[in-house]
Design a protein around this nucleic acid. Structure first.
Lengths: 218, 218
DNA sequence: AGGAGTTTGTGAACGTGGGAACAAACCGAG
DNA sequence: CTCGGTTTGTTCCCACGTTCACAAACTCCT
């Protein structure tokens, strides 16, 4: 245990663990839907597609929420993980770029049900303004600052073509957004303190192609 | 260097490197579009958003394609990476599930331009059959086996609701598909020898929410 | 031809993550 | 209350990935 910083609850959860917590949460929700009240690390691990040692270690970073000899209470653990991730509160999100992908994102029900709320859809193309997608009005990109300020938005989603992505990111950062989810197929640069995660469909396919090619060589 | 297997070219590229090669390739394409012929590891690294030592180590797994004191020839390196990943050939791909996301995927131009070719769109809902999306006919899911056999498809994309994903994966695996890209928000199980990569929009947002929450605590 | 300047390729140190294995803790039966 | 069975929480060790730092190799200028 190293020198702890100013904060009282100085938990330092490894990044790899953080990335798996949402998977555990989803698996717990499925168990709860089936009215299962208690589960062992083995049960949950197989539902989440990991091995049980890793699951127990991951959960141990949150605290000791299990009971030896018994397992975990599904509802209790579910709440604890949700609280740790921060999805007990509701997060307002803006989506920029209402092309095919933006449409799909706006309509994605998984956002709403997991603590995220699309408060605005923005697009630079004025021919799209006034249109409603998933019940939300498409507005000019220049409304970004006002919306972010009014609604206290911290998370922005970029679904524009690659050429526009960096400009959009700059504008987002300038008006106070500190987390960006980037679907545009390009690397975007942001200052320290801003988190970016990227999702790139063609990169995933290329990784598969690499392994596929290797299989074919045998 | 451990005991090398049967294959002649027994290159063993680390997984983390494989995941970055497509990023380098994209950066090189951008440089080539700007008619830049040569670049240093520093140039390419900053275009790809990594540090130069990591980039050089990654490239060193492919071979020595640079020139000390000079840098890398853009076109030559581009070809070498493309060959290593396997995107000099064209990969046929089937997409199952033509909802909002399936539409977006079918229309995504980044596939075609990077060596992937959507040969079929499949959906279980017969009301969608006969429809054309991005110039490709939507066909019954039961046509899967015939299409895979005819076209030699090795890569399948799942864009269905979570409830259907495992069944789709099973059918894909049964008819010979060995690489799966899963967009459904659920864990799918496949036998050894089949690669699965998953893309989950809400998980990415939850990871951002976690970090956002931590920032807010300071 | 030689030296100064530049850039690659790589060895070595360091940090993070994964998995086996086991002690600690709990339950229930008798 | 004790004992056997079960499951968690944690420790230890190994593998993988990242970064630093530097020798090797190349170009260009004089």
């Amino acid at each position: 245990m190293t020198a702890r910083s100013t904060s009282e609850t100085a938990r330092d959860i490894p990044e790899a663990t953080v990335a798996r917590l949402p998977v555990y949460l989803r698996a717990l929700n499925t168990l709860a839907d089936d009215e299962i009240r208690t589960c062992s690390s083995e049960d949950l691990a197989s539902a989440a597609g990991v091995n049980s040692a890793k699951l127990r270690k991951d959960l141990s970073y949150l605290g000791s929420y299990g009971t030896r000899g018994v397992g975990y209470d599904v509802d209790y653990l579910r709440y604890q993980i949700a609280r740790e991730i921060g999805v007990t509160q509701d997060w307002p999100v803006v989506i920029v770029g209402i092309g095919n992908l933006g449409h799909a994102l706006a309509n994605y029900s998984g956002f709403r049900s997991r603590g995220f709320h699309v408060v605005a859809l923005l697009d630079a193309d004025e021919r799209r303004h006034g249109e409603h997608v998933a019940g939300v009005l498409v507005r000019p990109f220049d409304d970004l600052e006002a919306i972010v300020a009014e609604q206290g938005v911290a998370i922005g989603v970029i679904a524009t073509p690659a050429a526009a992505a960096q400009d959009v990111a700059d504008r987002m950062v300038a008006c106070g957004i500190t987390s960006v989810l980037n679907f545009a197929p390009t690397v975007i640069a942001v200052p320290d303190g801003v988190d970016v995660r990227k999702v790139d469909l063609s990169i995933e396919l290329q990784i598969l192609a690499y392994h596929e090619q290797r299989k074919a060589q045998l």
